[in-house]
Design a protein around this nucleic acid. Sequence first.
DNA 1: AACTGAGCCAACCGCCGAGAC
DNA 2: AGTCTCGGCGGTTGGCTCAGT
Length: 302
Amino acid sequence: MSTGLNRCGKSCRLRWTNYLRPDLKHDSFTPQEEDLIVNLHKAIGSRWSLIAKELPGRTDNDVKNYWNTKLRKKLTKMGIDPVTHKPFSQILTDYGNISGLPNTATRMGSFSRGLNNASVSVSGLSYTNMNDLKPLVEQFQVLNQETVQPHFFSEVPSSSSSSSSCSNVTQLSSPQSFPCQPSQAQFTPSSPFSWNDFLLGDPFLPTDLQQQEECDPRGTFSSTSPSLVTQNEFPYCKFNGLGYKDSNAFQYGATTGDDMGNSHKASSSPASSFVESILDRDSEMRAKLPELLGESFDYLSI
DNA sequence: AACTGAGCCAACCGCCGAGAC
DNA sequence: AGTCTCGGCGGTTGGCTCAGT
């Protein structure tokens, strides 16, 4: 049916349900609604439609947006992890229980330092850092199943995602054999992964990942062509639940593309930062653009 | 006045399941 | 059984606004 609108039916329906419906509230959320959202999120995770049903006049999109823009940051400022709803101190305690690591005091220090470093290059100590670290942690949990017990981020409520990320997290506790795992031999107990090294170095450039990608091009962490890697083969290759921004950020340290690989050759020293890797990458792209475009080109002059 | 960065939110995307054919 | 359409859902993005510089 043609409505004369340049919209598909789905868009129209969304517009109606999320905005035009007459029973919707358009005023700001009340403290009571805030409390309810936080409590429900704690109980059932990011099931926005279910949460919204408890809030008359609010849509799942409203609740989701409010959570993402306000509540999550609010909780973070209060020292509560918005994912697990646990105080960061408790998470750090849990983190301290990871086996095969140096003493807790050292780890705590390096962990906060890692977060602070991230805050410089991202946007302050916020949930973003936790989410940025999460896929890396998961990668390392997969790569080091023998030495790292998966329980830090695996505490994410199983209901926190509908289709993708949730299922992957639960898979952590049931390790599979992955075709792209021949590199596992490189992660022998004699050289266990060190959180300290990881956090003291560049969190986006774990050197072990380079070994991984050199070993098997298929077992990459590529987000440029995530469809090449199925979840069954290697569930944590896909960065489920992360946007391109996150994935791209990670790319600087972990892609297998020709150019990317070169880029972190130059920035793989422990002292280099994520920002430096971006700058390196930027220089490289600028150098390559003319040949890619077949003509002289300086995008800075646009 | 111009620029910049952060916050906000409607809209979009991709996946999934249900139901019709 | 296979395919298609539709609606629901959660995650993400793009563009607007506004405060700060």
